[in-house]
């Protein structure tokens, strides 16, 4: 049973890590906490639903849905954030809230206020026995996809020119621009990556929740924000560490808290977050250089 709970924790932590990374990538480059990140997930979720309704095969539907998330992120940058470039942190933050609220209302009025069921293929609700305990296919996919995405991102950032430029931009944007690398490209790439991560996270989220609704982006973006702050805002390894830590704490508390205390679970988790920040105000793995736009 303990092994089972560890799998649960890693599976949830992986999704949180993907989400937090999506926030952290954009923050590290433009200093914006994109609270509309959750709506990118919602959009990917609806895209998946639409693809399945139109009878696309499941793998293709997932591919289209994730691409939708990525493209929407780039479009969001172009429409909402590019005109605000150079604005204060507060203005950027408010813009992201505005985008988030706007999209929520569009989803509610344009699609439906009611959650839409997404029929996941039968094999995803299966489980396989492994010695003494059973592992669900869903959590296994979660773990594998999160791990692959983290490795792929790391390779991209380490082995490609754009990746290197992005890491450099996170440390000192102006120097990178002096090197002749266009700022717009770096920023667009950051949003593209964050959209991809949001799309992937949305697939894992929907696979576990079996429905998409207009407000589904709220909880994940909140969790991602907490994870990113705990990890160290703007630090990519920090975001991953924060995501896993949050996932593990949540599952362990849920598993072990006695019934009478269980309703205080979220309060306890957040107290833990405060405790971490009191000891390490810059987060678990602080960013090399705090970036402000």
């Amino acid at each position: 049973m303990i092994a089972q709970q560890i799998i649960n924790a890693v599976s949830l932590g992986g999704v949180y890590a993907l989400l937090a990374l999506g926030l952290a990538i954009v923050f590290s480059i433009v200093g914006l906490i994109n609270f509309a990140h959750g709506e990118l997930m919602t959009l990917s979720g609806y895209a998946l639903l639409a693809c399945l309704v139109f009878g696309l095969p499941f793998p293709l539907a997932v591919l289209v849905a994730v691409s939708c998330g990525a493209l929407a992120a780039v479009a969001m940058e172009r429409v909402a954030f590019r005109p605000m470039r150079g604005a204060s942190v507060t203005s950027l933050l408010l813009t992201s809230f505005a985008v988030s609220s706007l999209l929520k209302v569009v989803f509610q009025n344009g699609i439906s206020a009611r959650p839409q069921a997404v029929a996941m293929p039968g094999w995803m609700t299966g489980a396989f026995s492994f010695g003494d305990f059973t592992i669900g296919v869903g959590p296994s996919i979660s773990i594998v996809v999160s791990a692959l995405a983290l490795i792929a991102l790391e390779l991209f950032l380490r082995r490609t020119v754009t990746g290197t430029a992005m890491r450099a931009a996170a440390e000192d944007f102006n120097v990178v621009r002096l090197m002749g690398i266009p700022a717009s490209r770096i920023i667009a790439t950051a949003f593209l990556l964050s959209g991809l991560l949001a799309g992937l996270a949305a697939m894992l989220w929907v696979a576990q929740r079996a429905s998409v609704d207009p407000l589904m982006g709220f909880t994940p973006v909140l969790k991602a924000f907490i994870a990113a702050v705990v990890g160290g805002l703007g630090s990519l390894p920090g975001a991953v560490a924060g995501g896993f830590l949050l996932g593990i704490i949540e599952v362990l508390l849920q598993a072990t808290l006695p019934g009478a205390v269980a309703p205080y679970r979220d309060a306890i988790v957040l107290s833990g977050v405060i405790a971490v920040l009191l000891i390490r105000p810059q987060g678990l793995i602080p960013a090399v250089r705090a970036q402000r736009s």
Binding site: Q4, S11, V15, E250
Partner: peptide
Amino acid sequence: GRGTYTMGQPDFSAEITNIKG
């Protein structure tokens, strides 16, 4: 047995593992 959840909670795995246990 009894279990609780938070509305909007993303993950029920811990509660489900408790039921199985």
